[in-house]
């Protein structure tokens, strides 16, 4: 089963994505900050990280770098309410970027395309 780790400091957002992704059949893990996320990444098999970068403590950018260094197999989708262009500026190196205000079908299609991997893209 595909496991998605939702990293966000806002409990209400985590809970929304938890319900959303779980109902689509994904296994969902939650982390409140970068440290917690890192712990989960070390102990659990995670396929994809849905990452908010505006968090207290170590920010999403740092976490993304750590993932790219130590967990190369793990895909990252940066998800925040900032416009995608700004997200790319702040957290370079993620597979995909998602503006949270864009609706859930865009999120699902991005998750699917990232999980399928670049080799299958035309």
């Amino acid at each position: 089963m595909t496991t998605i780790l939702v990293v966000d400091d806002e409990e209400r957002i985590r809970s929304f994505y938890y319900r959303l992704l779980a109902s689509e059949g994904y296994r969902v893990e939650e982390a409140e900050n970068a440290d917690e996320a890192n712990d989960i990444l070390k102990s659990e098999p995670v396929d994809l990280v849905l990452l908010d970068f505006r968090m207290p403590g170590a920010n999403g950018g740092d976490l993304c770098e750590v993932i790219k260094l130590f967990h190369q197999r793990v895909k990252v989708i940066v998800a925040s309410v900032y416009p995608v262009t700004e997200q790319k500026k702040r957290v370079p190196g993620a597979e995909e970027y998602y503006d949270k205000s864009r609706g859930i079908s865009e999120l699902f299609s991005k998750i699917k395309s990232v999980l399928l991997g670049p080799e299958l893209e035309p």
Binding site: R12, I13, V81, K100, S101, G103, I104
Partner: peptide
């Protein structure tokens, strides 16, 4: 953020 949640 709240609007994103409402929409979702």
């Amino acid at each position: 953020t709240p609007l994103a949640i409402i929409r979702g």
